[in-house]
Design a protein around this nucleic acid. Structure first.
Length: 303
RNA sequence: GCCGUGGUAGCUCAGGGGUAGAGCAUUUCUCUGAAAAAGAAGGGGUCGUCAGUUCAAUUCUGACCCACGGCA
């Protein structure tokens, strides 16, 4: 007999680009296999950001419990490190209840932080330091990093200030070079991807965008701003929040906003696919039935 | 019909005697506490057509075609 501790807990992961039907699938899986859903979305963690993020509604949840939604204020900055901790806690909780954890979302980095348990350097963001470094050019920052940590400098994107600043931040705080990225797999995962063809996805994005505008997406952003979320912060969130913020400030008109958003969301979906394509563990599924079948096999339940 | 302006990358346009650029779009990619963020690379044009001048024309000249505006 094998030791029980050797078994890794099984979790299901559902990924895919925006508007591809992940949330629905996750709920179906949960219903069929006694599961609960852990969201992996870097924007849905924020309270009050609902329509713009396409957050699942209470009704759509169909009684299935969802974790990692509404866990932070948009006035604060939520990071992967926090996500990693909270999501692992949630997964632990679900396992304790002897239910099936379903990790579902479109933020590749967040998914990776759980599935591969990446070791994120334990250096908290130092906004003051960042602001100071921000004044320098990418070239200057790169030169600095080269002196501080030549290894890291070798494979960093030397034009990307944000990355350079973070790298310098870590070296300055730890006084040590950044350790190589460690990965391990704490869970036994079945990764499923929802994908639809390009023209279909475009149509779905368009339809969804229209619907959400009718549902009061602009009002939502207005409300956030009134409650004290600055336009600058809203712009930082990207997509809906960024372009609606531009619109509310009169920087663009309504038509420009809608057109730009459509394109930007399409771009976003593509960037997501660039990330997910690399992960060969993902099984791209054509329909729900095959997905449910695969899961049945994976967890050893006959369907 | 006449006059004017313009016809350069998928789109909007810059340029200018030695075979071309920008922004957006498109394609591909990166990702170590901001990741819906932040970045990188590539493809693409016989410069409206035909002729003339010239060593050389996409650039100058002419005709023609097309678009837009004005006048009849």
């Amino acid at each position: 007999m094998e030791l029980k501790g050797k078994y890794k807990p099984k979790i299901i992961v559902v990924v895919g680009p925006t508007a591809s039907g992940k949330s629905d699938l996750a709920v179906e899986i949960a219903k069929k296999y006694n599961g609960e859903v852990v969201s992996a979305d870097s924007r849905q963690v924020y309270k009050g950001m609902d329509i713009g993020t396409g957050k699942i509604t209470q009704k759509e949840m169909q009684g299935i419990k969802h974790y990692l939604l509404d866990v932070a204020s948009p006035k604060t900055r939520f990071t992967v490190a926090q996500y990693q901790k909270k999501a692992n806690q949630a997964i632990g909780e679900i396992i304790k209840k002897e239910k099936l954890p379903i990790l579902c979302g479109g933020t590749g980095f967040y998914i990776q932080s759980i599935v591969d348990n990446i070791a994120i350097p334990k250096v908290k963001p130092d906004l003051k330091l960042r602001k100071n470094l921000e004044k320098q050019s990418a070239e200057e920052l790169f030169e600095q990093l080269k002196k501080l940590d030549s290894e890291r400098a070798k494979n960093i994107d030397k034009y990307n200030k944000r990355r350079l600043i973070r790298a310098i931040e870590i070296v300055l705080k730890t006084k040590k070079p950044i350790p190589e990225l460690k990965k391990n797999q704490p869970y036994d995962v079945l990764m499923l991807g929802t994908k639809i063809d390009k023209s279909e996805l475009k149509k779905r994005i368009e339809k969804r965008l229209k619907k959400r505008l009718e549902q009061g997406m602009i009002k939502e952003v207005e409300k956030l701003h009134q409650s004290g979320v600055s336009f600058k912060r809203l712009e930082e969130f990207g997509l809906e929040y960024r372009y609606i913020a531009y619109y509310l400030q009169g920087k663009i008109n309504e038509q420009e906003m809608v057109e730009k958003l459509q394109k930007e969301i399409e771009h976003y979906a593509k960037r997501q696919m660039t990330w997910f394509k690399k992960d060969k563990r993902i099984i791209w599924i054509k329909n729900k039935k095959t997905a449910l079948g695969l899961i049945g096999e994976f967890i050893g339940v006959r369907c």
